[in-house]
Design a protein around this nucleic acid. Structure first.
Lengths: 200, 200, 200, 200
DNA sequence: CATGAATGAGTCTTCATTCAT
DNA sequence: AATGAATGAAGACTCATTCAT
């Protein structure tokens, strides 16, 4: 139906660089300012585009930010070492590093704060960031279960929450920036899940 | 500056009710709309006061919200039963209930989102809500340590984070509203912290 | 229910001068620019008020213009002379003069042009200007009928349209500004309505 | 790019259909939206062309609309019956029908409203629609004068205005849609213009 | 003290017009 | 010739804050 090669559409093609620049700027500003405080003027300026160009591609501010969140590259897994403990720690550290890099807590805060008003934001954050990261952890735990290094009846989702949860709790308590949290969390959970009759 | 209680003597009464109404309305709207979206008009309307009355008492919007968060009554402990596990579960449940009641996740989200812009909000949330709740948990854990039901070398703060953390992780993953989370979390942590050589 | 005198509302009273200035400016600009081209900035500037003051009193542009049209003082009758022909001519001349004074044809044009979009405008123009003027003519014609100077079975509304109509037709044909139109129209209609058997 | 009819020889065909489609769409939208509210995007969409194609042919929005009005086909006369009264009524009825068909009152309103800003619109409306229609009426009246069925000293232009005028007056008074208006108007004027000494 | 009026700065969005393909 | 992208210049409306009563 569409001649994707030949009839490459008439007229000037839409600049892909601009698209990227806009989305990047939008996401960055979303994290730094929050939904409402961030303005399209700022996005336009940061992306080096006119405001109208933004509106040409996304009808509304909400559309833009939705697209920006949707464009977040889902997390790459850190290279697996094969060792359960090491892999879990690596994933958690990578998580914390990403959060720090992109001002992630503020972004999460924005999505939470906007939940009533623009629920798509939290939904997208979940789909693009939260759940993929959880899936990585879950895979490792599944492997561990198969190996027999954790109990066979372990509730994996609960275990995942127990692994990541302390990060949020620490952040809220003002004790973020503790590099050792990841190891502590992993050790605690692995200890709890150690199959019965396993001595130290 | 503020005569908070009675209509004392010849002086003109200072409407303490209005103060309260304003702060209550502000906090409620802060949770439901977020910092920027919430307007002083809304607060004024909800509190049954004029906008100027608000400005008469708090110079700026940030001041008002700061005061509103500062006025949050710090959590009452649920009545202690004496049993460690029961007490921990009760505290966590009470925590979740409070969060649900006051749209707490959105409020937390707002404070996180505004951290760059109005750091006082997160600081106050911490001081008034997060840390007191953590202190409750910590007290119980200290008691447990004295009783010998958890290891003597336990890092209590880390344990506290491990207890509350799953709540946040669950919420973000879209698996809030699971009443059993509290028990799961407590059991997991108590298992992990069980003194060596203690069989089931 | 309302203490109209004593509790004259707290706070600063709303300036009546500003109200008038705004409505006057709005009506004038509406006639000179049309609905869409007229901007609130222009109104604010012309009235010597801030734009927000306008919005404080009328929620939207449509509301403002509706109010402006509603505030149009309904036509005063020119003093009746008692003579039917003279009175009709006077009314028509007064009508033409008013139209010229307030750029009335453009205003009428705007209301017609906006009929699909903002039907209130035409409705108000009708109620405030068109119909009252017609009523004046009709009264004179009724008197004429009673006197026997026009046929008893005259359709008065049709006669009124026949009296004013030529004004519009002339304007559209580019032959406005003909002072004698009023007399011509009156004479034509009175001739047509002359009771049978009445010689010249 | 598109060979709309025949691929005529070596020359490049010049899409006359597009021209027509654009002008038709423009005129239609002008009547339905008014000058300012109508957008070139709407015209382009309705005509199935790109906005640039419009600008390629008419430099500005005003140019386009001017051209659209200039392209209005001037009224065909309804077939003359030979009878003065019948012919007049037919012309007036045809007039009213045309107005209804093309949303003519809104179009007239737009031209009036824009008179200060874009006087060409009213001028073209006059030249293309108003005056030709008046000419038709005038011809019939001239015939009537020659026949002796109206006074020889009749001011024909005034009579024409008296014939059409009631239509506008009725419309503004909210009494449009009265099919009998044409006959009433004609009868009234013919009565008024009846040569002296002519009994009924 | 309390109120409502008044305002200036700012935000999203629209649109005629100009460019690049 | 024709298209779609890009843009600058508005415009209606909002809101924290300051004034006048």
């Amino acid at each position: 139906m569409h001649d994707d090669k030949t009839t490459r559409g008439a007229g000037r093609p839409r600049s892909a660089e601009k698209n990227d620049a806009i989305l990047r700027a939008a996401l960055d500003l979303l994290a730094r300012q929050g939904y409402v405080r961030m303005t399209l003027d700022q996005v336009a300026a940061a992306a080096g585009v006119s405001k109208s160009t933004i509106h040409l591609r996304w009808k509304t501010k909400a559309d833009l930010l939705t697209a920006a969140l949707a464009a977040v590259r889902t997390a790459d897994a850190p290279p697996p070492s094969g060792d359960v403990r090491t892999d879990l720690v690596d994933i958690l550290r990578d998580f914390a590093a990403t959060i720090a890099q992109v001002n992630g807590m503020a972004l999460i805060g924005t999505c939470l704060a906007e939940e009533d008003h623009t629920p798509e934001l939290l939904a997208l954050l979940r789909a693009r960031s939260v759940l993929p990261r959880r899936a990585l952890l879950r895979e490792v735990l599944e492997r561990a279960r198969e190996e027999g290094s954790i109990r066979p009846d372990t509730d994996l989702e609960a275990a995942v929450s127990a692994l990541i949860g302390p990060f949020y709790a620490d952040y809220l308590a003002g004790r973020g920036d503790r590099p050792e949290w990841a190891e502590q969390a992993v050790d605690l959970i692995l200890t709890a899940l150690r199959p019965e009759g396993t001595g130290k």
